[in-house]
Design a protein around this nucleic acid. Structure first.
Lengths: 341, 341
DNA sequence: CTGAAAGCGCTTACAG
DNA sequence: CTGAAAGCGCTTACAG
């Protein structure tokens, strides 16, 4: 096992000073052409790679960006990470992914860990618990330390920073409208509790769509799920106690679960019951029938977030000007919705 | 924006030397109790956190581990990462995730980037392209530099390092046997091309199961998919040209696609056609009917990989002894298979 | 054209 | 009990 080659070793080997080697490798005109070439050849031969850690310490920047997401086993977040990766890599940055597992404490710990020198800036989406507690001191601290932060999807209004979100309310509005246009009369909503920011917005979109269409709002058709692990029972109960001809699910799992529950009870989709879910992921594409969805464009959100962050990192002037970019969702019609005849 | 606090600043503030501050903060008995307490109080008050980068440079270890996976938008890899995260965090390590996007070049670039000081060791699964090319120089290089490496799932026999795999052939064998026990006579196989190591092993398991049961092997029932994006057409063609009463899919997507194709053609599952998939992910749990699968225990694989790596990192003696841990897959029976009457 | 020195933020063996 | 010095691997302003 040979240790990694350092400038010092090269210097010794070639009998010059460390500074000369350093400059030669950066192709500085300071150094005579022939020494430069000799050193470069040597470095290449022995596959010299500068030590990132030393560079980070010297330059006070790491070229790493930290991403904190609530869960990685969740298709949407995964698409966002892949968008971040793509542009980060292209612009010469590495991505460090940490998971909060929906826990406030883990979120704080991860942020502190990363903030202690490992990264140049954050991209993150809040954990459920953080949204519930409304305790954002760790975000403030990061910002105060001069660490740029961009939030996506689950954001906090209270924090001033760049953000990228989707038109949750409007997207839902359009989807519910699509159901109405298609002839549905009683539209059930399966959503999250209100403290999840996006759940709340989507619920609003649903309510507005019904109101604008002059349809009555039946609270019995709205089920708010606290814990996804219990969504099966709550959805079963909805089917047990109510009748309706359409379901809007605030995420894939809810929508697909509703679809299965309907099929178990012998309903035909979309003839008897139409279904739309928010977030276009693998479940929607691979369900039977394939499910109509609101496409959340996670990769694009990630790409935008990364660009925003890197732009801020590389901008010279320190403007305290924050943007929030809203990505437009789109409706993908597949087989779970159809004009009722 | 206040800059991060450093030892130097504390030293100046408190009118002592940097070394004294350093030692006081590590609670060294070298330093007088009262100075120690005073310094600690000050550090706490101003929320001092040592700079990770400086520590890394000094200690020649980063407490970061690098994970390279082919794709993040893939449930199995995602579960592995979450397993790695869990034990890494518990043992005081951070996780840097990079994606190869199934590309050899990206894999090499990412490895070189990470190997230049950012991490202490690798956990990785090979990209398809790498498996095809059989070019593993970048792995050798990492190992030669003294960078421990543990491979999982898509591993290379040619490389000597710790590995964690699943009993691909045996797991498939058991699953196909389950289909046979259950009364299936003609079992189709949807698999990948042979250069994908796990695909090949699973195909072997299938062949062995049929042979051991004295059943004839019909090449027409075996479809090898090169590119997942084209799996729809190839599976459609299988249904078009052949008759069979069971399908084994080498991954979730293939199995679930087969299931949908069957349902479109009016087959009942499992009455007319039984289906099993390898890898127990969200698709299987949320399909209709819920799909029987071979559970690949990704989280556990990730946890084992992380433990192996960290053990190696923290062991004093440099034994050149490599283990390959094989995780036992388990069959989860759900609704897509049933004893034929 | 080349090199010695200072410094990024930390630790630790060694003097005093 | 406290501090000056050397060093981790690099860069860069400054002498010569």
């Amino acid at each position: 096992m040979r240790r990694k080659l350092t400038l010092k070793q090269i210097a010794k080997e070639m009998d010059v000073s460390i500074s000369t080697v350093s400059k030669a490798l950066r192709d500085s005109p300071d150094i005579g052409l022939d020494t430069r070439e000799k050193i470069q050849a040597f470095a290449k031969l022995y596959n010299y790679k500068p030590n990132n850690i030393a560079l980070s310490l010297k330059n006070r920047k790491t070229k790493n960006i930290g991403v904190i997401i609530p869960e990685i086993v969740h298709h949407f977040f995964t698409t966002v990470v892949s968008g971040v990766e793509k542009v980060a890599n292209k612009r010469g940055y590495n991505v460090i992914v940490c998971l909060s597992n929906e826990s406030f404490d883990r979120e704080v710990i991860n942020m502190e860990m990363l903030a202690s020198g490992s990264i140049d800036g954050f991209i993150m989406s809040l954990s459920k618990e953080t949204q519930q507690k409304k305790d954002f001191h760790h975000l403030r601290e990061a910002i105060n330390q001069g660490m740029p932060l961009v939030m996506f999807d689950r954001v906090a209004e209270e924090i001033y920073c760049d953000k990228v979100v989707i038109d949750d309310a409007q997207g839902t509005y359009r989807a519910v409208n699509h159901l109405i246009d298609t002839g549905c009369k009683r539209i059930a909503l399966i959503t999250t509790t209100d403290y999840v920011s996006v759940g709340k917005l989507r619920t609003e979109g649903y309510l507005n769509a019904l109101r604008d269409a002059g349809m009555e709002i039946d609270e019995n058709l709205i089920v708010k799920i606290e814990d996804t692990r219990e969504c099966d029972e709550q959805i079963e109960e909805l089917f047990e106690s109510q009748t309706f001809d359409a379901v809007f699910g605030v995420n894939e799992i809810y929508a697909v679960t509703a679809m299965r529950e309907a099929q178990i009870r012998g309903f035909k989709i979309p003839e008897d019951i139409s279904v739309i879910g928010f977030t276009d992921g693998i479940l929607s594409k691979n369900s039977f029938p394939r499910m109509s969805t609101i496409n959340q464009h996670g990769t694009q959100m990630g790409a935008i977030a990364a660009d925003m962050l890197i732009n801020k990192l590389e901008s010279v002037d320190e403007d305290e000007y924050y943007r929030t970019e809203v990505v437009k969702s789109t409706l993908t019609e597949r087989e779970s919705t159809k004009k009722k005849s």
